[in-house]
Nucleic acid binder design. Structure first.
Lengths: 182, 182
DNA sequence: CAGTTAGGTTCATTCAATGAACCTAGAGTG
DNA sequence: CACTCTAGGTTCATTGAATGAACCTAACTG
């Protein structure tokens, strides 16, 4: 990884984090993992990333301990990629990046809203629940579509993510399979 | 910017944030700006980034409204790059990335510690003060060297950052100028 | 007026991203 | 039992960006 070669001598834990998640597409792969995407093909169609790049990123994330590659069926051997504890710890990074992108990038209409599932309150910029005054773990976060969300994405995974969802819950096969069931 | 071309169709404020700060070196430039680095040459020696890349990144950050380029002397015209409000809003992103890099990247010895200047308490993972229970704005953060910090960095800016410092306070010329005053 | 400093630009080379094509192995279908 | 589909890749030529060295400019310094 090119970043690593240059960042290694940087005296900074930010640089060390960027060695792992700072490459192109990597954080979007992790984001999709939080959204419940687990399979190679689902990442592929949802991100629109080249296959070779996706394979390289998934492998790098597994080696870094961010994702766990696990066999979910044997007959045709199929693996899925699931966030580890280390990967789950990236939630504040994604949350703060998303909050910044929504608040500070001009012309941004809210695309998704994140709520504390226990009480329904929308999360604050730090991923905390303003009502309960606690940092909300991703498993307790409910994602709801916002006004800026494209109502008809081209890929089945994007369509599955139109509905309110709990984070980390795997995208169901029934959501993804049939294309045009309106 | 290559990222923009591909991320634009992504329905996500994380992707929009990455269009601005997701490129190689960009977040490290912003980090240095928080550390008090303001001048082209100081970024250059501290980051070890190619000159052309630094010029492109600074220009992009100015266009994105993250940095403000301001003339600080006329006689030889010299500009400095200072964080805007929008740039200051990136502090939670850097803080959470740094916290993750320290906690989750194996073999990481703490390089710098960040404390609430008002009370001296070390910041939590979200950039909050655990004692005062408030998010600490970067101007109120004191940075102190940690055990993992190289005690003799090769560049004068790195040496200036060895001492405890308030964030955003510009790196003084007297810190940077003389090389080997032990 | 020679040297230095700040802040760049230009250019050839290297390296990674892209996207299309191809590969493999098992599953379902007629 | 041939055909085709699906999941999960690999390979390869092309494109594009990063790299680092060299060069440029303008002003100040001794």
């Amino acid at each position: 990884m090119a970043l690593g070669k240059d960042y290694v001598h940087q005296q900074c834990s930010i640089a060390r984090a960027l060695e792992v998640v700072g490459e192109r597409w990597t954080l979007l792969v992790v984001r999709d993992a939080f959204y419940g995407v687990r399979r190679y093909n689902d990442f592929l169609v949802h991100l629109g990333v080249p296959r070779a790049v996706l394979a390289a990123r998934l492998q790098a994330l597994v080696e870094a301990g961010v994702l766990d590659r696990r066999r979910y069926q044997e007959s045709p051997p199929r693996d899925e990629y699931v966030l580890t504890e280390r990967g789950l710890a990236l939630w504040p990074v994604l949350r703060s990046l998303g909050a910044w992108g929504r608040a500070e990038v001009p012309g941004a209409v809210p695309v998704r809203h994140f709520h504390h599932a226990d009480c329904g309150t929308e999360l604050g910029s730090y991923g905390e629940c303003p009502a309960c005054r606690i940092p909300v773990p991703p498993a307790d976060v409910e994602m709801r579509p916002g006004a800026g969300l494209d109502p008809d994405p081209g890929d089945p995974v994007g369509r599955a993510l139109l509905r309110p969802r709990r984070l980390l819950v795997p995208v169901g096969r029934e959501d993804v399979s049939e294309a045009g069931n309106s």
